[in-house]
Design a protein around this nucleic acid. Structure first.
Lengths: 320, 320
DNA sequence: CTGTTAGCGCATTCAT
DNA sequence: ATGAATGCGCTAACAG
C-alpha cells in the first residue's frame, strides 16, 4: 500500500507538501495541491492512522468502562456516549469489566499506554488514589458525584432523588418502605443509603435490614425480591427500585402471584426506561442519554475539571 | 516519560535487549534481564502502544458495527463479543450506526486506515461488492448467512427457524398467521420471508400483506402492532415476533386491552431473552452470547473463511 | 547471547 | 510557498 513518500514521489513534491494537503494546511499552491490530489486518487492512498497516532500522540479513542453491556441502564448511557463521540470524531473502546477490578485496571493501563486519550468510567470499583494516580496519564471522567476529588463527572444527586421518592411514598401514607439496589458500594449507593436513613429518622421509622435488597440489577432479580417479600411476616408496603428493569420484573411477578399493585405493594422505579412507560411504572426519570453525551464532552475537554449535575424527576404512573 | 532508549541507557544494554525482555523473548542473560527490569521499575516505564502498532502493523482492536447499543439483541451479542475479545487480548471498538450507511462505511475505512485489525458487522446495510472490496484490508465477519460470498460469518438458519415456528403454530390449529420484523432488508429478513411464503404455499393459505409488520424492534413497537391488529376486521390469530422485546410489548398491551393470550392471539418470540422467560413467552432461542464469542474467534482467525451455523430451538411456554 | 541498524508512516520545525 | 531533516517509540533482520 502506498504511503506518503510514494505520493510525494508521484506528485514530484516533498512529503511535507503531501502532509499539508492531507491535513488541509494553507500555503500550498493550487497546482501542487492538484498534483498531490491526483497522485492520491491514482494510487488509492490511505493514511495509516497508527503512524498519525504515534506522531501526534493522540488516538481519538475514548475508553468506556462498564460492568455489563447487556443492561438497559448502560445501553442508554452508551447510546448517548456513542452519538456524541461520533459528532466529536472520536471512537469508543468498550471495556466490559463484569465488575472485575483487574479489568478496570487494565482500562486504566490503556490510558498509560496511550492506546486511548481518555477514559469514561460508568461504574467504578477502583479506589480514588488509584484513579488520581492514573489521571496524570489522561483525562478520567466518572458517572458519580466527584466533587472535591478533582476528577470530572456527570451525575445525579442521588441523595435528593431518593429522598424525593421516599417523601412521595410517605405522602401516600406508606411507612414501611424498603429499597432494591444493584450493589451497596459506590458513591451512588452510599448517597441513597444516607437518604434512606435520614428519611427513616425524620419520620421516626425503624431501620429494617430485610427491607433492603442487594444485587438487584436484572429482570430476574425482581422476581427474587417478590419471593422474599412473600415470605415475610411483616413485609414492606412500598419499595424503591433503583432500576426499572427490576421493577418490571417485580410487577410481572406480582401479577402472577396475585399481589395487587399498588394496593398491596407500591413501587417506584428508576431511569424511566421504555419498559417503565409500557408497564405504567411510576419512576424517577434519569436523563441517561444526555448524561452519556455530556460524559464525552467532559472526557474530551481534558483541560478543566467540571462537575455536571443532572436532574432526576418523578414520573407518576400507576404503581404507587 | 521514559522510552525504550532511556531504559537501554540506564541498563547499559541495547534497545534490542530491552525489547527482548519486554516481549519475553529468549536469549537474554539473567543479569542483563535483571538490569533492564530494574531500569523499568525505577523509571516507571510504560510501553507506547502506538509505536508498537505502527511497528507491528497490528492494533489488537476489533471494530463492532451495530445499529443500536440499547437493544437487548445487540446487548447479548456484544456481551459475548466483549468476553471473547478479552480472553484473546483484543479490545472492542463500538461503532453505532443507527442504520446510517455512511457510518458503516466509516467503520470499513477504519480497516483501511489500520485503526482496527478486523471488523464484525452485526447488522449490515452495505452491499456485497463494497464489503468484498474492503475485505482486502482486513478480515470482515458477519452475522448472517454468507455462504458463497467468501466472507466469514456466524449465523442462524432463519429459514428453518421460521419454518419450525410456523409449523408449530399450524400444529396448534392456526391458519391466520402474521409476523413482525425489524426491517425487511437484509439476509435474515429475506430468509424469513421466504420461509413464510413457502409455508403459506404448503398449506394453501393466502398471503395477507397486512399480517406483516415492519419496523418492530423495541418494546413500544409491540404496542403499536396490537393497536393495528385491533382495527382489523379479520385479524391474525397468531404472530411470529422476531424479537422478544416486541413480543413482551405485545403481551403487556394485550393485557391492558383484555386480549387473551394465547386464546385470542398466539405469540412466538425470538432470542429467548430474560424477559421472555419472565413473561412466559414461547420463543425461538438464539444463542447470542455464544455467537458473539464465535464472531470474535472468526474475526481474529483472518486466515480462513468459515461459515458457522448455530442452532435455534423452540422453547414452549404460555403464549401459544 | 547481544548490539547495530534500518525501517514503520507521518508531522513538524527550521531554513530557504 | 516549499522541502530537508528530525523525531515519535518500538520491532526485527542481520551481523557478530
Amino acid at each position: 500500500m502506498a504511503n506518503i513518500k510514494d505520493i510525494a514521489k508521484m506528485a514530484n513534491v516533498s512529503v511535507t507538501t503531501v502532509s499539508r494537503v492531507l491535513n488541509n494546511h494553507p500555503y500550498v499552491s493550487q497546482e501542487k495541491r492538484n498534483a498531490v490530489l491526483q497522485a492520491i486518487e491514482k494510487s488509492n492512498y490511505q493514511k495509516n492512522y497508527n503512524a498519525v497516532h504515534l506522531s501526534t500522540g493522540k488516538t481519538f479513542l475514548i475508553g468506556v468502562v462498564l460492568p455489563y453491556s447487556n443492561h438497559p441502564y448502560f445501553g442508554l448511557l452508551v447510546e448517548g456516549i456513542a452519538n456524541e463521540a461520533l459528532t466529536l470524531n472520536y471512537n469508543i473502546v468498550l471495556i466490559q469489566t463484569n465488575y472485575d477490578k483487574n479489568r478496570e485496571l487494565e482500562a486504566l493501563d490503556m490510558l498509560k499506554h496511550k492506546q486511548i486519550d481518555a477514559l469514561i468510567i460508568c461504574s467504578r470499583i477502583c479506589d480514588w488514589d488509584t484513579l488520581k494516580h492514573y489521571s496524570s496519564y489522561g483525562s478520567i471522567t466518572l458517572c458519580e458525584d466527584t466533587r472535591g476529588r478533582n476528577l470530572s463527572s456527570t451525575f445525579i444527586d442521588h441523595y435528593e432523588s431518593f429522598f424525593t421518592a421516599l417523601e412521595f411514598l410517605a405522602s401516600k401514607g406508606h411507612s414501611k418502605i424498603g429499597y432494591c439496589i444493584g450493589r451497596t458500594s459506590g458513591t451512588n449507593s452510599t448517597q441513597r443509603e444516607s437518604a434512606y436513613r435520614d428519611f427513616l429518622q425524620k419520620y421516626n421509622h425503624p431501620y429494617e435490614v430485610h427491607y433492603i435488597f442487594n444485587n438487584c440489577l436484572f429482570l430476574e432479580d425482581g422476581e427474587q425480591v417478590i419471593k422474599e417479600i412473600k415470605k415475610m411476616t411483616d413485609p414492606p408496603t412500598a419499595i424503591l427500585v433503583t432500576s426499572d428493569q427490576v421493577a418490571a420484573g417485580m410487577v410481572t411477578c406480582c401479577h402472577k402471584e396475585n399481589i395487587s399493585i399498588p394496593n398491596k405493594l407500591a413501587l417506584i422505579g428508576f431511569d424511566n426506561q421504555p419498559i417503565a412507560k409500557l408497564m405504567a411504572i411510576t419512576t424517577m426519570e434519569i436523563p441517561l442519554v444526555q448524561m452519556g453525551r455530556n460524559l464525552v464532552i467532559q472526557a474530551t475537554n481534558s483541560k478543566d475539571t467540571t462537575y455536571d449535575q443532572f436532574k432526576s424527576r418523578l414520573i407518576e404512573r400507576e404503581t404507587v
